[in-house]
Deep mutational scan, measured.
Amino acid sequence: DRHTIHIGDITIHLEGFSEEELKLAEELIKRGIHLEEVKRILEELYR
């Protein structure tokens, strides 16, 4: 499954994450956390 996060003019595609995980990812990215770090956090929390 493919999910999309929109932040301003930026569109990020993250596959294989639930709606809850994507909301967390979006919040972290909006707070300035680097995408690679966001992915690592999600994997630690949900895998």
Rank of each mutant, 00 (worst) to 15 (best):
R40F: 02
T4G: 06
E15R: 03
E43F: 08
E37R: 04
H3S: 04
R2Y: 14
H34D: 14
E21R: 02
L14E: 01
L14W: 05
T11M: 13
H6N: 12
I10D: 08
I29H: 02
I12Q: 06
R40H: 10
I41P: 00
K30A: 12
E43I: 11
G16F: 13
E27D: 09
T4E: 14
Y46E: 08
R40D: 02
G16M: 09
H34I: 05
A25D: 00
H13W: 11
E37G: 03
E37N: 02
I33M: 11
R31P: 05
E36A: 08
I10R: 03
D9G: 11
E26H: 07
A25W: 10
E20S: 07
G16I: 15
R31T: 13
I41S: 01
H13E: 10
K30R: 15
E44A: 07
K30L: 13
T4S: 09
I10K: 08
E37H: 04
D1C: 02
G8Y: 08
T11F: 13
L45Y: 08
E21Y: 15
E37S: 03
L14D: 02
E19K: 11
E15Q: 10
E15D: 11
K30V: 12
R40L: 08
G8A: 11
H6M: 13
H13M: 13
T4I: 07
L22C: 06
H34Q: 13
Y46C: 15
R40Q: 09
I41Y: 06
L35G: 04
T11P: 05
G8I: 09
G32I: 15
I10P: 03
T4C: 14
I12V: 11
L24Q: 05
H6L: 11
E20H: 03
E44C: 04
S18H: 08
L42G: 00
D1M: 00
A25V: 13
E21S: 06
L35S: 03
E37F: 06
L22A: 09
R47A: 15
I29K: 01
G8S: 08
I29T: 04
E21M: 14
E43N: 04
T11S: 14
D1E: 03
L45H: 02
S18E: 08
T4D: 11
L45C: 07
K23L: 10
A25N: 00
E20V: 06
H13S: 12
V38M: 04
H13A: 07
L28G: 00
L28K: 00
L28V: 02
L28S: 00
K39H: 07
L45E: 08
Y46N: 10
I7S: 11
T11I: 13
I10S: 08
H13V: 06
G32Q: 02
E37Y: 05
L28R: 00
E36Y: 07
I33W: 10
I29D: 00
L35W: 14
H3I: 11
G32K: 00
E19P: 07
D9M: 11
L45V: 07
T4L: 06
I29S: 02
I33D: 04
I10Q: 13
Y46P: 01
H3L: 14
Y46G: 03
L35I: 13
L14I: 09
G32P: 04
L22Q: 08
E21N: 06
H34E: 10
K23N: 06
I29Q: 01
E19A: 11
D1H: 06
H13C: 02
I29E: 01
F17A: 06
R47W: 15
I29M: 04
S18C: 09
E21G: 12
E15T: 13
E36G: 06
Y46L: 15
L35N: 03
A25S: 02
H3N: 13
I33Y: 11
H6R: 03
L42P: 00
L45T: 07
E21A: 15
F17R: 03
D9P: 07
T11N: 02
D1Y: 01
V38Q: 00
G8K: 06
T4P: 14
H3F: 14
I41F: 09
E27W: 14
E19T: 10
T11K: 06
R47H: 15
R47E: 15
E44W: 09
E20K: 08
E37T: 08
G32M: 07
T11V: 07
I33A: 06
L24A: 05
E36W: 05
E27C: 03
R47L: 15
A25H: 01
G32C: 07
G8V: 08
I5F: 02
T11W: 10
K23V: 09
K39M: 15
I12F: 08
G8Q: 06
V38H: 00
H3C: 02
E37L: 09
E19S: 12
E36M: 06
H34K: 14
R47V: 15
I10E: 08
H3K: 01
L45S: 03
I33R: 03
V38D: 00
K30N: 13
E19G: 07
H34M: 08
E44R: 01
L24P: 00
E26T: 11
K30M: 13
K30Q: 10
H6T: 14
I5A: 01
G16Q: 06
I7Q: 06
